[in-house]
Simulated scan of single mutants.
Amino acid sequence: MMEERLKRLRKAMDHGSFNQMPFTEEKKQMIKRGIENSKGNDHDILLHILQLLVDEKTGHELLNNLRSRGINQYEERHGFLYAALHKMEQDKLLDSFWKREEKNYKLSSRGRKVLQSLEEGKSVKNLSFQVLLEGE
């Protein structure tokens, strides 16, 4: 599956503004390592998000709190975090409400159970950024 992603990336690069940039084997491996490394952090990042949302927060506050915990992989991609929050909301892990023209998020009772399971080291089926964004 990862090889297919790299092929699609190469095709996009060949037809886009990066068509003059060589796509060497070294660059392929660097991208592959980056994808693999980010997967390993999914569990930790989701755990941090759930822990932070025990108390209500806006998306911006959540992003700042993640940054203060040293999680900055998604700092440049705010849309990614909001997409994950939206999916978690759809999956009934979060409750959301509007307050002073800002959307706030807080763990639902289901989200608290999932957080407790994660903190106890239990695996939670289908809970990762990959799954959240791809809807698997």
Rank of each mutant, 00 (worst) to 15 (best):
M2I: 15
M2E: 04
E3V: 10
E4H: 10
R5Q: 11
L6H: 00
L6K: 05
K7E: 14
K7F: 09
R8N: 13
L9R: 00
R10D: 10
K11N: 05
K11E: 11
M13W: 06
H15L: 12
H15D: 10
H15E: 14
H15Y: 07
G16F: 06
F18C: 13
F18G: 07
N19H: 11
Q20P: 00
M21I: 15
M21C: 11
P22H: 11
E25Q: 14
E25V: 04
E25A: 09
K27M: 14
K27T: 13
K28H: 08
K28A: 07
I31Q: 03
I31N: 01
K32L: 15
G34P: 06
G34V: 01
I35V: 15
E36T: 07
E36P: 01
N37R: 15
K39S: 07
G40D: 07
D42V: 00
D44W: 00
I45M: 11
L47E: 00
L50N: 00
L50Q: 00
L50V: 04
Q51N: 10
Q51I: 05
V54K: 15
V54F: 04
V54A: 11
D55E: 13
E56A: 05
K57P: 02
K57Y: 06
T58V: 09
H60V: 11
E61Y: 06
L62P: 01
L63F: 04
N64S: 09
N64D: 08
N64M: 11
N65C: 13
N65Q: 12
L66C: 05
R67I: 03
R69P: 01
R69D: 06
G70D: 04
G70A: 06
I71G: 01
I71W: 03
I71Y: 06
I71S: 04
N72Q: 10
Q73H: 09
Q73G: 02
Q73D: 08
Y74P: 01
Y74M: 03
E75D: 08
E76C: 03
E76P: 02
G79M: 08
F80C: 03
F80N: 05
Y82M: 13
Y82K: 05
A83N: 12
A84W: 06
H86I: 01
H86T: 02
K87M: 10
K87W: 03
K87L: 03
M88L: 11
M88S: 01
E89T: 07
Q90C: 09
Q90L: 15
Q90M: 13
L93S: 04
D95V: 03
S96V: 10
F97W: 12
W98Q: 09
W98D: 08
W98K: 11
R100N: 15
R100C: 06
E101N: 13
E102I: 05
K103P: 03
K103R: 14
N104K: 15
Y105D: 04
K106W: 00
L107W: 11
S108M: 01
G111D: 07
R112Y: 04
K113G: 02
K113M: 07
K113F: 05
Q116P: 00
Q116S: 14
E119G: 07
E119Y: 02
E120L: 14
E120H: 12
E120R: 14
G121E: 12
K122T: 00
K122A: 05
K122S: 06
V124D: 13
V124C: 10
N126F: 09
N126K: 14
N126I: 03
L127Q: 01
L127I: 07
F129G: 08
Q130H: 13
L132A: 08
L133G: 12
E134L: 15
G135Y: 08
G135C: 05
E136D: 15
E136N: 15
E136K: 15
